[in-house]
Write a protein that binds this DNA or RNA. Structure first.
Lengths: 107, 107
DNA sequence: TAAGCGATTAACTCATTAGTTAAATAGGAC
DNA sequence: GTCCTATTTAACTAATGAGTTAATCGCTTA
């Protein structure tokens, strides 16, 4: 959880997540979208992966990155629950996502 | 938004928010719950207030701090929307909270 | 096998953050 | 006014984070 919030604290990292929300990308494709060196992006990707927010898969010489939505939702949901115990915020979202994944042929 | 995620990146600050979710507290009462100096807590509170996550009110020599739920929910909601556009996560929560506040005699 | 490209690691710099103690500010009580 | 308490500000230190360039690793292909 600490790692997730730590990872989310950086604007470029949140931007990476936003890109990956649209489509899976290789490290190079991600780097091309930023005005920043590749090693810098590589480090950001490591942090995101270490936080469980993205997954990487090496295919040939490319490394493909994809978003891991579940951990993000669970973490934010858990925190919101603790701080705003008024109702049940992201529960429906998480449930909906799990449902989506279950019927998703990929992955 | 950057400020919010920045503020949430610190464990003690998230803990402060959790305390304030239960009850309003003075700066001293908050500091008493941590193994940390008062100036350190004061700085954390400033960061939280600057991010719009807490509000302070000086009453006599005490400064009372309270949680500002709306900004937290809106920010997290907005981000989740961008990254998980699958459905409508925190919208109901925000709506419910606004409803609560509207009919709340306090504040 | 040599060249080239994608990606990461290494080594380093610079700026920022988190914490400290000591001092200042401001209210309340005597 | 003087003292005491609550809180913040100032000044400083130590650790961490974000970025750089150069070097390395691994895969592809000619």
């Amino acid at each position: 959880m600490d790692k997730v919030f730590e990872a989310l604290a950086s604007t470029p990292r949140r931007k990476i997540l936003a890109y990956l929300a649209e489509v899976d990308l290789t490290a190079g494709e991600i780097a091309a979208r930023f005005d920043m060196s590749k090693p810098a992006i590589s480090k950001h990707l490591q942090i995101l992966e270490n936080a469980g927010l993205v997954a990487s898969e090496k295919r040939g010489q490319f490394v493909h990155y994809s978003l891991v939505r579940e951990n993000l939702l669970n973490t934010l949901n858990g925190f919101v629950q603790r701080v705003c115990p008024v109702s049940t915020p992201l529960k429906r979202e998480s449930a909906a996502l799990r449902e989506t994944r279950r019927s998703d042929p990929e992955e």
